[in-house]
Design a protein around this nucleic acid. Structure first.
Length: 151
DNA sequence: GCCAACGTTGGC
DNA sequence: GCCAACGTTGGC
């Protein structure tokens, strides 16, 4: 079973929003590397760290699960959507996504700052890499355990 | 709001 | 196929 970290801006969609909805299509990923992780490597049941980005205290706030195989993100075909991609067509969709299901909220936020303080234990963790901007990234078994133990 | 990092676009 | 310009991400 693989593990992942997925970023969301809490003003757009927070862990509380996911808790309220139960399950949510992960729309709006427009980065090929992130898409490829969802399309090629994610499996139903994989664990996901839900990360709040672009906010007062960025960090991991909860646990979710991959709840579907990848399928085309409908927002790419919708001219009204912020995520509309005029170069994409239903016959040849560019962007894929998965559904994500709420599992639990962590008792407290494991902040980016705290994660940095455990950089050594976390080893090669892409979230902590300089200039990292990926919104979907892999988490190793060891990293998953290390981070869960912090909560 | 600033700006560093970095991905994408498009002219050549 | 190079690379400058531009847009976006996301921490601060």
């Amino acid at each position: 079973m693989a593990h992942w970290l997925m970023k969301s801006e809490p003003e757009e969609f927070s862990i509380d929003d996911l808790a309220a909805r139960g399950r949510e299509p992960w729309t709006g990923v427009r980065n090929y590397q992130a898409r490829n992780f969802m399309r090629d490597d994610m499996r139903v049941g994989d664990g996901v760290f839900f990360y709040h980005s672009n906010c007062a205290v960025p960090g991991i706030v909860g646990i979710a699960r991959v709840a579907s195989a990848a399928y085309p993100d409908p927002t790419q075909f919708d001219p009204q959507s912020d995520y509309f991609d005029p170069k994409s067509t239903p016959a040849a969709p560019r962007w894929q996504m998965v559904d994500v299901a709420f599992e639990r909220k962590l008792p407290r936020t494991i902040s980016l700052d705290e994660l940095r303080r455990h950089a050594e234990a976390l080893g090669d963790f892409p979230l902590l890499a300089r200039g990292n901007r990926l919104s979907v990234l892999p988490v190793s078994d060891a990293q998953w355990k290390t981070i869960l133990a912090l909560a």
